[in-house]
Structures are given as C-alpha cells and as structure tokens.
Amino acid sequence: MQPAAAFASLEELVRQIPDGASITVPVDGAGVALAATLALIRRGARGLNLITAPNSGLQADLLIGAGCVAAIETAGVTFGEYGGAPRFVDAVRRGTITVKDTTCPAVFAQLQAAEKGQPFTTLRGILGTDLLANRPDWAVIDNPFLPGDKVVALPAMRADIALFHAPMADAEGNVWIGRRRELLTMAHAAKTTLVTVEEVRDGSFLDDEQLAAGTIPAMYLGAVAEAKRGATPLGLAGRYGVDDGFLRDYVELARSEAGFARMLDRLMGAARAAAE
C-alpha cells in the first residue's frame, strides 16, 4: 500500500498555513474550503498572499475583512448577481492591501507552468492592457520561433499552499474532485495542498476506473480534514447550493466594518453549532 495522506482536524490543518504564506484558492462554488477559512481567521492568520484561481468572492472578502491578507492576486473579486465584494473594495480603496490585477487564463497558464516544473510560460493577448503596464513581474518577449511576434511571458505560479474543499476522500487520503480539474492543477502546482472533504469513504478510489480519473492522489496532499458542509454558505456542485439569504445580507451589511463583524459572527456561530 502507498503512504496515505495525513488526516487532520480543521485546526490542525490550518496550523500548516503560516503567516505570510502564499495560498491558491478556487472560484466560489468550485470547492471553497469555507470552514477551513473560518478556522484560519480564528487562528488569527496575518500577511497572507492570496491568489485566486482565477477569481473569488466570499472567501477572499472574509479573509480581507478579518485582516488576514497582505496581498491579493486576482482576475476578479465579486459576489456576482448579489453585488460587489464590500471588504475587498474598501481595502483596495484605502490601500490596506496590495492588489495584483490579472486575467483568468494567465493564472491557469502560470499554474500549468508550475505543475510542469518550468520557470515561465507565455500567453497570447494581454498586450496593450493596463494589467501588463502594472505588472513588472511580467515580460514581453519575442516568439523565438517567429521573430517579431510578441508574446507575454508569465512566471510559474508555485504557491506555498493550495487550499480547497472536495466531495470526498478515501481511506488512503486520495481526494475525488470529479470534473473540477482546476483543483488538480492547483494541487500539482503548489508546494503542498490542504483539503477539506464532505466525507471519508472506505477503500481506494484508485481501484475504481471511473473514480480514478477524477481523483487527486494522496502524494500531493499535506493534510485532509473532514468538514461536513465545509463550503457553506457557498455551494458544492452535486451536493448543496448557496445560502441565498446569507449572501444577500452579506453584500449589504459588510459594507461597514461593524456589519462585517456581525456577518462573521453569524458564520462562526453556525460553524460552532455544526461542530457540536
């Protein structure tokens, strides 16, 4: 039998995220580790370098509002139809966090470069944008195979940690993510990956041809913690939907710091109740 991933409690899992760490997180609804995010806020994390793959909503807004974030690299932070991300917008305007604006395919391309162990990658587009003008860490180079053909060079994105939530792990700590294969790329690209899951099942997903293709092997995972409804109040495809009422209240109330504190308390209270 192969070495298994380490199973951990939520608190043990977030202790593996030191202050100042760079963390990749997925899009709202694609498996956001919201319960772990609350545990991270309870731990009082500071100075995180948050990288959204490629955009975020509630998770980024909570971490920013709770003072955990020094910098965010993102293609967008929004609550979609519910409205703008209040703590993100406030922090950007006040200059209390550093923002590195990017574009979705750049993030994916940089993660793919990292998972291959390559130093950089190139991407079409982006030329002539103010994204490029504000990214001294990006470069414009000549296509070596077609001189004069300019392309944007982007450094590999090797985060300290990838953090996400998935439907299930097996007894060996392999994690099934199904078609959400950006999670697989994130896990490959990061130095280590911390995952929460709805449930832990007996046996090995790798013994089942249908499950194996959608599975992240335990080798990539630093810790796996069980967290039932671990994405709520966000949804998890095939399991549960978003808490519509919460998100509607949040975008309104979290425009003030006091309102944000109340919404955070509401989530913490619900998390405590779920743990008991």
């Binding site: 490629p54 955009n55 993102t74 293609a75 967008g76 932070v77 929004t78 703008g84 991300a85 993100f88 917008v89 950007v92 305007r93 604006d101 990017t102 574009t103 979705c104 395919p105 750049a106 991407l123 079409r124 587009g125 982006i126 030329l127 944008t129 994204l131």
Partner: peptide, 14 residues
C-alpha cells in the same frame, strides 16, 4: 473599484 478584468484581456484577442 469594480471586480476585475476576468478573462477579457485574453478573450478580446482570440
């Protein structure tokens, strides 16, 4: 401040 550029910087080109 609006959300961000999303995929526009690429899709507009291709």
């Amino acid at each position: 401040r609006w959300p961000g550029s999303f995929g526009s910087a690429y899709l507009y080109f291709v």
